[in-house]
């Protein structure tokens, strides 16, 4: 009878006992739909096709099966100096046949270490056994990253003419509405420590545009073009880490 009581407790009472959980993990992120345009402006955006982020999560379960949570992610793209170098290489490959190319960008080595940031508000459905758990989640939030200005002076070979090409983003930094769905699952090492893996798929609306202004510096005549980036960017990520049950 006593043994049966212990069995009932471990199978039915131990799961779903937690209210507050805090988790930390490493997140590997990759784009599914191509966001970049193979344009020089790609190198002005502090965002990469794939990157690693640090993730902090806090969850509160107000019901046996239902909870809410907040996920914060911070990562860094290719270093600003590398990005500036890539912008220069891109401009040179386009124009160096006829022009000497001199570039400058708004990318600053002294800027924040974390230039990609994400924040989600989650609704969580909880399924647990004594040793395993699985939490499907639906999230809405914001993805943020910097998009810098860029400029190139093109001095024509064997001539006095100089052309300026400037690229100006519609705003700096950029915050984008993001929706995501994920499944967090793992193994309970103890009553308070869980190992966790979480694949996630997300989509953020970009609306990012660059204005390209080409100016003949002698005549001061300018031509403007708009470079628009894809409106919906689909990406996947997987994170792995530890969840601590606080209460």
């Amino acid at each position: 009878m006593c043994l049966q009581t212990v069995y009932v407790y471990s199978q039915h009472t131990l799961p779903y006992h937690s209210k507050w959980q805090i988790g930390t993990s490493i997140n590997s992120y990759a784009q599914v739909t191509p966001f970049f345009k193979d344009n020089a402006t790609d190198h002005l955006i502090e965002f990469d096709k794939s990157t690693l982020c640090s993730q902090l999560s806090v969850s509160y379960f107000f019901h046996k099966h239902w909870g809410i949570g907040i996920d914060l992610l911070a990562g860094s793209s290719t270093s600003p100096a590398q990005k500036a170098g890539q912008f220069t290489e891109s401009m040179q490959s386009q124009y160096e046949r006829d022009y000497y190319v001199t570039t400058s960008t708004g990318e600053n080595d002294a800027s924040s270490k974390f230039n990609i940031e994400r924040g989600y508000f989650d609704v969580i459905y909880r399924m647990e056994s004594a040793r395993f758990f699985i939490y499907p989640e639906l999230a809405i939030g914001v993805s943020s990253f910097y998009s810098n200005w860029g400029r190139a002076y093109l001095k024509q070979k064997n001539a006095n003419d100089v052309i300026e090409i400037s690229y100006t983003p519609n705003k700096i930094p950029q915050d984008y509405f993001t929706i995501a769905t994920s499944v967090s699952f793992g193994y309970k090492l103890s009553k308070r420590i869980f190992l966790n893996i979480e694949p996630l798929i997300s989509s953020h609306k970009t609306g990012l545009t660059y204005t390209q202004t080409t100016t003949d510096l002698n005549s001061k005549q300018s031509v403007m073009d708009i470079i628009s980036y894809k409106r919906n960017a689909l990406s996947v990520s997987i994170s792995g880490g530890v969840v601590v049950v606080l209460k």
């Binding site: 002076y153 100089v162 510096l217």
Partner: peptide, 9 residues
């Protein structure tokens, strides 16, 4: 002619 001071005329 124009006076040139990089990169202005």
């Amino acid at each position: 002619f124009k006076v040139y001071v990089p990169y202005s005329f």
